[in-house]
Structure formats: structure tokens, C-alpha cells
Design a protein around this nucleic acid. Structure first.
Lengths: 263, 263
DNA sequence: CAGTGGTCTAGACCACACT
DNA sequence: GTGTGGTCTAGACCACTGC
């Protein structure tokens, strides 16, 4: 039973030996549980913010012990895909909660803590549908020419414009997204993606460089010509390592800095 | 057995719990085990690269079950303080291994993978003993005027000077460190710190900004005047959150980029 | 082969949140 | 009180490493 996948009908013959080693790879039970939990999240059986069944209930459903379910949930919890709350239950992680507002935005003010400036002001400058150029398509695992949405916005903290971002999204999963919906939405953009488009960003990678402000950037961020800016290119992924967003940001680093923890 | 302290000579003081609860609180056994393992590593009972006792042996020593020891080791392993190797044992993590060479240096070449350029060339420009200025002292949790070592070096990849770093170290723990020893040493500086000074860097925090190259930087990194550089200020910590190094680096980002994973 | 870490179980009890 | 996650135990067996 170790290398086969569990029956999708969620029935495990009681006679089957769960520990017999078959040759090729060997996948522990808790890994299989992880996959099944992941699938349920991906397919929307449990949505972001909702509780998943209790450990005992999942143990019964999968015909394993509570400890095995626990190990699977521990892993997913460590990957920030689930959130455990003692006495209450286990919940699908979401970008809509205050505590995780700044999980992906690592820019913090020179003095103060992340978020101490209050919510950022978001000004959507444009949002349009275009054809993917070669590099955009590659980043989003599309074909050149495929339809993508492109948005541009400025984030301001305490009236100071601090970030300019260009954002590219595959058009298909975000059908119906307009500048108005972006502009009218309060809270993190990734929260909007969850509730409106059932797209949950699970992880991201960033490439960071220092670049001089170009003419367009100078005006929008109100900095002098050639001011060094932090160039942050991010690709965000949903489940299954599927890239769902490309973002090219320019950060002012006179009033803020990019904060990173190394472990 | 859960809320009592352990019955051996190695009893922990009723360590204050990190949670914000007002009650006297409650420290699980595995947390106490973690602290004791941490202490043994800090005091050098097991040195970086060495194996710690087996799970069964530790369980006997601490009078707990193997599962409890296991949970403690799991945690320390997740924090990169220990490394488990199935069939061999559990080892104290070290900066001297190939696999973790680039744990703290996140600069990767535009094309290629971390380390694909071969080992970096390290040129020590200076190493001297000075009095800590106010900001250096604050970063290293010293008093203004305390003795510190200050070193400057250039890292080059494939003959291209890429990083200039100024490094400050508290003089006391690094007594005897000279430019010669730095220059003659092969491999990561943090590995030298482990073997020669019994100082192990456990984690670090970085503040990243974009800044124009100043006159001194231009020559050393061979870039044009005003070229934007990545300014990376790092404070590295040993056990117990004790700051042991301040590092101010300037990275060229035309040939490389700073890579960060967000989870 | 023995010794190590890795997985899994069944059951007990504790801490926490809600009702 | 009930139900949730959190801790701990004792024991079994599996997978990997090296003698």
C-alpha cells in the first residue's frame, strides 16, 4: 500500500498491509495524505479561510491513525498552506488575514514595523488586455501571443509614492478582471484573487537588482533623475508550481528597505 | 510528566514561555529538550559537523520517549541547526559543507545556478582593530568605543569583481584574527569562524537598498560613476540571538541578481 | 549484521476555545 | 461539557548506511 495511491473513493480495504515495501520509490502514507489534502484545497473542497475536517475525522476518512494525519498537516502547515489554531481547528491559509498581509511584500519603513504606516494607498494606473511577449509568456508558462492582463499601479505609504508595479496575469483564469474591480477592492490583491477568481498564491520567487530610475519612473515615484531603485521581479505560483503572476516592481529605498531573514 | 521539569541533573530552570500568556505558562518537554541540545551545541559538547548521540541514547539520557526527542530534533533540524542523515545519525550543521556554501549569500549569476561559476576569489583589502562607533556598537550589542575588528574584501566571480564587503566583528571572541589568516583561508569565512573561533552563525537578517556607487566603490568594483548597486546590510547571530557580525556589502547586479524565495 | 533515522499505530492526557 | 489541536508514551516495523 505504500507506493500505490489511495483509493479515490476514500476506502481502504482493512486487510491491505499498509507497510509492504514495493520496489520502485516508496511514498510514506503521510505524503499520500498530503497530496490528497492538497488536491482538496486545489479543487475548492475547502476554500481559503475555511476549516478543514478535524484530525480524527480525516484519520477515519483515510483509514490511518491520527498521528499520520497530523504529520501531513504539520508539513502543510510548515509550508504555510494550512494554519492550525489550537482548540478551534485547522484552516486553509489565506492572504486576506491581517497577520499575513505582508507575507510577500518585504518592504518595511526605515523606522517602524511592517504595517505600522497603516494600509497602503493603491492607485491603479491602467489595466488592459494584451498579447504576451516572448519573455512574459515564458515567465507565465504560456505561448507567445497568448492573452494576458497587464496592470500598473502605484503603492503609497503616508502620501509618499513608494512602489510602482507592473503586473501580468494569464487572461483565462482572471476573466472579467477590470481596472474598476482592482481599484474598488480594499485589501491585498492576492485576497481579491482568492475570493473572485479562486486563485491562491502559494509561493513566489523574486529576482532583485539595483537600477536607475527611468524617465517614466521618476514622475510616478517623484524621485530625481537616475535615482537608484530596487528592481524586484516576482513570479508567484499557485498549487502544483503553476506560475500565475509576473510582477515587476520598482521600490524606493530612501524611506524603506527590503527586509530578509536568512536561516 | 508534562509540566514538571526533568528529573535529571540537567534540569532546566522553569524557562519563561515565549507565548504572551499571562499565566505561569507551560513548557512542553520537547522544548526543554531543545534548549538542552542547544546548550550542548553552544558549549561545544558537539561541534559543527560532528554527530550528536542517537535518538534512543538521548531519550535515555533525558528520561523521555524517543518520540519526544524526535520532535525536538525535528524542530532544530527545521531551523537548520541540525542535519539528519538516515542510517548515519544526526549532525550539528556547519557552514563548511558544499551543500550549504550559499546559504547566506543569495547572489546568483544571471545565467547559471548558485555556485556554477566555481569558487569565488576573495581578496582581503584590509583588516584592522578599531573602536566601535555608535552605530556599529549598537548593531553588535557592544558599547561605543569597544574594540572591534574591521575587514574589507572584494569577492570576484570569474575575474569580475562583484561584491565589496565591510565586515565588523567584536574583537573579544575573534582574538587573534588577522588579515593573513583571512587571506590564507580557503572556503567560506563562516567556516573559518567555526573551526578557529568556535563561533557558529545560526541566522542573519538583511536590509537591502539600492544606492549609487561612491568614488571608492567605483574603483574596487570597476563600475561607472553612480552605477546603482545593491546595498546589503547583514547582522549575523550565533546561538541565543547574540549578534556576532555586521556586514555592509555592495553587490553589482548587472551580471548577478539577489534571489529570494517567498513562502 | 547491527545501528541509525523514518514511519505508523493506539491510547492517554493536557491546553484551549466555544457554548 | 464537548470538541479541537498539542503533547507524550511504548512498541512495532521499514529504509538506509556501513561493518
Amino acid at each position: 500500500m505504500t507506493t500505490m495511491s489511495l483509493p479515490t473513493a476514500e476506502i481502504l480495504p482493512p486487510s491491505s498491509d499498509k507497510r509492504t515495501s514495493a520496489t520502485p520509490s516508496f511514498s510514506p502514507l503521510y505524503q499520500q495524505i498530503k497530496s490528497m489534502l492538497l488536491n482538496s484545497m486545489r479543487l475548492g473542497e475547502w476554500k481559503p479561510g475555511e476549516a478543514i475536517p478535524s484530525e480524527m475525522e480525516l484519520a477515519t476518512r483515510f483509514h490511518v491513525s491520527q498521528g499520520t494525519v497530523r504529520k501531513a498537516i504539520d508539513d502543510l502547515s510548515a509550508e504555510n498552506l494550512l494554519v492550525r489554531r489550537q482548540g478551534k481547528g485547522t484552516f486553509v491559509a489565506t492572504h486576506a488575514e491581517q497577520q499575513v498581509q505582508f507575507r510577500f511584500l518585504k518592504l518595511v519603513p526605515n523606522s517602524g514595523t511592517p504595517g505600522s504606516e497603516g494600509p497602503a494607498r493603491r492607485d491603479i494606473i491602467q489595466c488592459r488586455r494584451i498579447s504576451a511577449s516572448a519573455d512574459i509568456a515564458r515567465a507565465l508558462a504560456l505561448r507567445t501571443g497568448d492573452a494576458v492582463l497587464q496592470a500598473r499601479r502605484v503603492l503609497s505609504f503616508v502620501t509618499t509614492p513608494t512602489i510602482l508595479e507592473d503586473i501580468w496575469l494569464p487572461a483565462a483564469p482572471f476573466k472579467g478582471l477590470t481596472a474598476e474591480r482592482l481599484a474598488n477592492h480594499q485589501g491585498p490583491m492576492y485576497a481579491l484573487f482568492e475570493t473572485e477568481f479562486n486563485v491562491r498564491m502559494v509561493r513566489a520567487e523574486e529576482k532583485i537588482r539595483a537600477k536607475p530610475a527611468t524617465e517614466g519612473l521618476e514622475k510616478l515615484l517623484k524621485v530625481a533623475h537616475g535615482t537608484p531603485l530596487l528592481s524586484v521581479e516576482r513570479i508567484a505560483y499557485t498549487y502544483k508550481d503553476l506560475p500565475m503572476e509576473l510582477r515587476r516592481g520598482y521600490y524606493r529605498t530612501d524611506t524603506h528597505y527590503y527586509h530578509n531573514k536568512l536561516n
